[in-house]
């Protein structure tokens, strides 16, 4: 996994609550068996006028002018500002894959749905929870200044504005450690193989039916 340390980039405001993962990446693109290539279909229905198809060349598709990421001033966005309950609905990890593939490195919102929030950390994408008032301030600042950039410093756990204002955020220490160092957590868990085996040996005595074979 690509590490996340400090990132500075253009921020864009997506002023909509309850953005679900169907919106982030519609189902027809979930037929892919790869982890990459979803960026051109990120927010497909919000972004394009027509219905997108898998493996379609998106150059030349009619764009929805009212969609924030289509506006010239937000080209190259890498920090997404969002509203409450971002990423609700389906567990599809294709949602963070699409955001990452598009170039988004961090999403800032007052709240996230649990599964999406988890999935982000597995992909070097940082979901940041700030207070509703703080997110409101950032929305106003981003909307009023073209090319407004935010800096996200994971180690210091702060979001910094060009004016030097800082907003601190919380992050679990284990997740932070993995993200800062780009660690694969399967490898880390396998270092605990003895604990897992010990658990299994104890458990099979208590509940042997949980270890039965399920053959066809």
């Amino acid at each position: 996994m690509r590490p996340f340390t400090v990132h500075t980039g253009v921020a864009a405001p997506l002023d909509l609550a309850n953005v679900d993962t169907d919106m982030i990446i519609p189902k027809q693109f979930l037929k892919s068996i790869k982890r990459t290539g979803f960026g051109k279909n990120l927010f497909d229905e919000l972004r394009y006028e027509d219905e997108g198809q898998p493996d379609q060349d998106c150059e030349g598709r009619p764009l929805r002018e009212d969609f924030v990421l289509n506006q010239t001033r937000y080209q190259g966005t890498s920090v997404l500002l969002a509203r409450n309950n971002f990423g609700c609905g389906s567990s599809r990890e294709h949602a963070p894959w699409a955001l990452d593939d598009y170039g988004i490195r961090a999403v800032i919102a007052p709240s996230f749905a649990d599964i999406f929030f988890n999935n982000c950390f597995k992909n070097g994408l940082l979901p940041i929870v700030l207070d509703e008032e703080e997110v409101d301030e950032l929305f106003k600042a981003v909307e009023s200044t073209e090319g407004y950039e935010l800096t996200v410093d994971l180690d210091a756990q702060i979001v910094k504005t060009p004016e030097g204002k800082e907003y601190s955020f919380l992050v679990d220490s284990f997740r932070k450690h993995c993200l800062l160092n780009g660690l694969d957590d399967i490898g880390l868990t396998l270092q605990e193989a003895d604990s897992i085996k010990a658990y299994e040996e104890k458990r099979i005595q208590q509940a042997p039916w949980l270890f039965a074979e399920r053959t066809l």
Binding site: P96, I115, T189
Partner: peptide, 17 residues
């Protein structure tokens, strides 16, 4: 529900963080 990275994690370790 879990994401695909976690599906892989559970396949490989039978555990979840």
């Amino acid at each position: 529900g879990i994401g695909t990275s976690e599906v892989e994690h559970v396949l490989a370790t039978q555990c979840l963080v």
